[in-house]
Design a protein around this nucleic acid. Structure first.
Lengths: 242, 242
DNA sequence: AACAGGTTCATTGTATACAGGATAAAGGTC
DNA sequence: GACCTTTATCCTGTATACAATGAACCTGTT
């Protein structure tokens, strides 16, 4: 809670106006980048001081983050960064396969040239970043691809659901990535997907997405943690004072 | 805004403690029952007086309702009951077909006896209520069936998404139901679904759900409204003083 | 040394006050 | 009479104060 306060404070001094949406964005991003590990306490006053606003604004932001499944907000208790279980991780991936597969199928053959070019550019950017061993940049490009799919979904309801699922899977990927793994890059997956989209082959696009997500999930370490996590959650101390 | 205030006030006097969740429940229910038609203004102070709490609690409730897509909350403007467009209605139904179909497929053959019995009882209750021409009761039973599916979904993430979609489709059904139609009852659909679930036939269950939802959507009047709704939304007055 | 009890502190829940923005009504102009 | 401007009112945005709950800690006992 000490180091990142300073980081955010710096960002705050640069930008002048702070609203609840800014707080949501910054916290979401910090969770995604693992600067705020799961279980981190997020007291309202502290956050208020960090962002230079009062508790009212922070409270609204926290409620929103809770509805995005980023933080856990329980009555009379400090909000904490959520730690999705292994089971929930599997379920989130399954849900995303279903939804993103459908979105890709709907999108097949219906992408305008500009959007397709934009997607292709991001895909190129991803392989290039991977070549440079620049994993953060690679992740940005990869996320951009999937977010573009969500944005352009002909079905906006599914698109919004997909946006949520992309965030949630990103969080659990960061959480459960095998530590020895340098990158979660799956060579050619995105290119193949774009090809299927361009050719208008809906089923190929759907299966391309689904296989891609299955491979991604397989890269994670989802072996049961000998109930250590459960014990932590139940009698848990010893994580927040670090 | 006058009549339902009294109703709610009565309910409030009965139950003693009021929290934001109670407000969410009551407003959600009122919207579902069309006691709060789309576009209804929901000022924070008024709601506060109705429920006997201050704006803080009301604000939290409204934010939650907004995240449930029940109300529209825009900066510096009064919250209003949301009026989903015809296009969004179609998209919501499509999303629900996808998600509920998958949930049904996952659930096929995996329902314990008690849950199956509960579902069967609700289905019987529905036909019985329909026989009595008691549409509100029929709706309750029908909703109970679908909510049970969502609750028992092996994939809890999909289950939560389904709960949200059930609410949203219920709202648009109330909104776009053909006025001459007495009931949205589809004879045998639920029974057939239960049979497929009991036999463990995943694909039959999925298709049963999907056909059921398609029939439901077909019962609605989703013909374009000659842009009258759009004009209303854009230059709109003249709806709230009623 | 382990445990039960009570006490203190940290943190959230709720209400209220004031400031700013949006809407609606009144007044003035063409 | 229609249109623009001005003003008044309503309503939300934000901050702050007080109450209430929960967690940590300290103490006294066995």
């Amino acid at each position: 809670m000490q180091e990142w306060q300073e980081e955010v404070l710096a960002e705050v001094r640069a930008g002048s106006r702070i609203s609840d949406r800014d707080i949501v964005d910054k916290v979401r991003r910090a969770v995604l980048m693992q600067r705020l590990p799961p279980g981190t306490r997020l007291p309202e006053v502290t956050l208020g001081e960090v962002f230079g606003v009062s508790r009212s604004v922070v409270r609204k932001a926290l409620t929103r983050l809770a509805s995005e499944h980023v933080v856990d907000q329980r009555p009379n208790q400090v909000a904490r960064v959520r730690a999705p279980s292994i089971e929930e991780t599997r379920e989130t991936f399954a849900a995303r396969r279903l939804v993103e597969g459908e979105v890709a199928a709907l999108l097949a053959g219906r992408l305008d040239a500009a959007s397709h070019a934009r997607l292709a550019a991001e895909a190129r950017g991803e392989v290039e970043a991977h070549g440079r061993d620049d994993e953060p940049a690679r992740i940005e490009h990869s996320l951009a691809i999937h977010h573009l799919l969500a944005e352009h979904s002909p079905n906006r309801v599914l698109g919004a659901m997909l946006t949520d699922l992309i965030l949630r899977t990103s969080i659990v990927i960061a959480l459960y990535k095998r530590p020895n793994l340098a990158s979660c890059f799956l060579e050619g997956d995105h290119a193949a997907l774009l090809a299927a989209l361009g050719q208008g082959d809906a089923e190929a696009a759907r299966e391309g997405i689904q296989r891609h997500l299955e491979s991604l999930e397989a890269l994670l370490d989802l072996s049961p943690r000998e109930a250590s996590i459960d014990l932590m959650a139940i009698l848990g101390r010893s994580r927040e004072q670090a």
